[in-house]
């Protein structure tokens, strides 16, 4: 109960993302592994938080729980003051659509839709009216892909693909942007550019949480949390 009241207390608009005491188990055959062992974290509006950790430390699982893609066995997740954990999938989906943007390391785009159609799809999911062509143009401008609106994902180079993914992730103007290793395959300049975009997101009063092992990213974050063996290191 205390955790819930803490979360409720934080639901004052200042907190974009709040997670308390997350637990998550995995069962593969007979083995049971504990991917998250009581992770608590929060992201304020206007803040950029980086979660770093070696591979296998539970980063991806944490991100999935935070985004409402996975259900933690214990603990709770609030986004913009609304609880997203332990709710029916339909409600989680609505929250994801309205409040959360997810940027994955790869596979951010539907292969048979071009960049603009991908963005439009994400906007439609969030319940936005169609015809916000200027929005799409602005998004594409923002990531420097103005000329590539009609390109299909397989026609884009690695850096372009990442930026297009970012444009899609931002299509619903989310409260919090969750990014999983967003610069993994990018060169320094593109990486810088993506990070700047993330930063400007935070500056616009939204929360940004990046899961990464990249030191550049760590350097740009306001706060760095180290995840090891399913726990946030003190």
């Amino acid at each position: 109960m205390t955790t819930t009241s803490t979360a409720a207390a934080r639901a004052d608009g200042a907190t974009a993302l709040d997670a308390t005491e997350l637990y998550r188990f995995f069962r593969t055959g007979e083995e049971e592994t504990l991917a998250l062992r009581g992770v608590s974290l929060h992201v304020q509006r206007g803040e950029t938080v980086a979660v770093v950790g070696p591979s296998g430390s539970g980063k991806s699982t944490l991100l999935a729980c935070l985004a409402g893609l996975d259900e933690p066995a214990g603990g709770s997740v609030h986004v913009g003051g609304e609880r997203i954990s332990h709710r029916p999938e339909a409600q989680r989906a609505r929250l994801r659509a309205r409040r959360i943007g997810v940027l994955l390391q790869s596979g951010n785009l539907i292969a048979h839709l071009d960049v603009r159609e991908n963005i439009r799809l994400a906007q439609a999911a969030a319940g936005r009216r169609r015809g916000a062509a200027s929005d799409i143009a602005a998004l594409l401008d923002g990531v420097g892909l103005r000329g590539r609106a009609h390109a299909l994902p397989h026609e884009l180079a690695g850096g372009e693909l990442a930026r297009a993914g970012l444009a899609v992730a931002l299509a619903n103007d989310p409260d919090v942007l969750l990014a999983d290793e967003p610069t993994g395959e990018l060169d320094g300049r593109t990486e810088r550019r993506v990070l700047d975009l993330l930063k400007s997101r935070a500056d616009a009063g939204r929360g940004v949480l990046v899961v990464t092992h990249n030191t550049e990213v760590v350097g740009f974050a306001d706060r760095v949390l180290v995840l090891r063996d399913g726990r946030i290191q003190p």
């Binding site: 070696p54 591979s55 390391q105 993994g184 395959e185 092992h213 990249n214 030191t215």
Partner: peptide, 11 residues
């Protein structure tokens, strides 16, 4: 070709 692109630093 970019053998470390998808890996964390230590790896």
């Amino acid at each position: 070709d970019e053998p470390t692109g998808a890996l964390d630093r230590a790896t």
